[in-house]
């Protein structure tokens, strides 16, 4: 059982600032990351102020429907992240895991949408990293944000696996954790390939048998991986993960929400303003 119900999650009497060190570090990092994204956004806007002759018509390249969907997904992932922190502060480990999985899933959908968008822009709209200044600044800015999301997803997965660490130190855990992570990674890659293949099949008006022919390996790997992940997820034994770890999940949550607020700015400045 946890005796952590008395933990004050907003104040830490053991530090001189009254703020947990992990949280203070994360806020300092996020402040510096603000300046990083500020520089990237400025660069994009400066070149948009004076587009050179022959610049692409951006409003014909963007898909407002896809971007709006991505934005909604990222906002909902932020909600799930906030609920994960809230659950662990109450000591609800299972609920925390469910919310973490939801956040991971939504993060992966966002990344999938970005991969689809970049692929569409390069192959169908002819917008590459090097054939226009707009392409250079756009891919650098949104790609950097995408890297942040990918790092966030990786962190979420590691935290999810960490939540299964057994309370009994005599039980071996590392090998199982590594296996859990490998299965998670393979399932994610295979699942993404299968879903993107399905989308491509639907867009090309091909039959389902064509999809199965081309993506049988990815689909079957995903199904087997999901079954293994479900097996890994069944654990009723005491774990060394609870309310005292809420600060770890909260620090991770701060990073994830930061990625969300950066996208709020990018969505308006890079996408919506192009339609005026």
């Amino acid at each position: 059982m946890s005796h952590a119900a008395t933990i004050d999650h907003h104040h830490d009497v053991t530090t001189s600032t009254g703020i947990p060190n992990k949280k203070l570090f994360m806020w300092a990092f996020l402040a510096s990351d603000c300046m990083f994204f500020g520089a990237l956004i400025s660069t994009h806007l400066i070149y948009r102020l004076h587009p050179p002759p022959g610049s692409p018509d951006v409003s014909k390249i963007f898909s407002i429907e896809l971007t709006s969907f991505s934005t909604f997904i990222l906002l909902m992932s932020s909600l799930l992240m906030a609920l994960a922190v809230n659950s662990l502060q109450k000591g609800h480990v299972r609920s925390t895991r469910h919310n973490l999985l939801g956040t991971i899933f939504f993060g992966l959908i966002f990344l999938g949408c970005q991969v689809y968008e970049f692929n569409h822009f390069v192959h169908e709209k002819g917008l590459t990293l090097s054939n226009s200044i707009f392409g250079s600044t756009f891919y650098t800015l949104t790609g950097t944000h995408g890297c942040h999301v990918a790092i966030g997803v990786l962190w979420l997965v590691l935290m999810y696996i960490r939540s299964f660490k057994p309370a009994d130190p005599s039980r071996s855990w590392l090998a199982r954790a590594i296996a859990h992570f490998v299965v998670f990674t393979i399932t994610t890659v295979a699942g993404t390939a299968a879903v993107l293949g399905l989308v491509h099949t639907i867009q090309s008006h091909e039959s389902l048998s064509v999809f199965i022919d081309h993506h049988l390996l990815a689909t079957s790997t995903t199904v087997i991986g999901l079954a293994l992940l479900t097996w890994f997820g069944f654990s009723r034994k005491p774990v060394d993960f609870g309310e005292a770890n809420a600060i770890d999940v909260e620090s991770m949550g701060l990073y994830w929400h930061f990625v969300d607020i950066v996208w709020i700015v990018i969505f308006t400045v890079v996408y919506l303003l192009e339609y005026l």
């Binding site: 203070l24 806020w27 402040a31 949550g253 709020i264």
Partner: peptide, 30 residues
């Protein structure tokens, strides 16, 4: 998002000050 999801509303005001230092510098640069 920053005041509710990121808990600034309930945390010590120093967290808000720290973040806004970076934010103001970034906005100033832009």
């Amino acid at each position: 998002v920053i005041f509710y999801f990121m808990h600034l509303k309930w945390d010590k005001v120093f967290c808000t000050i720290l973040f806004f230092i970076g934010l103001v510098l970034a906005l100033g640069t832009v």
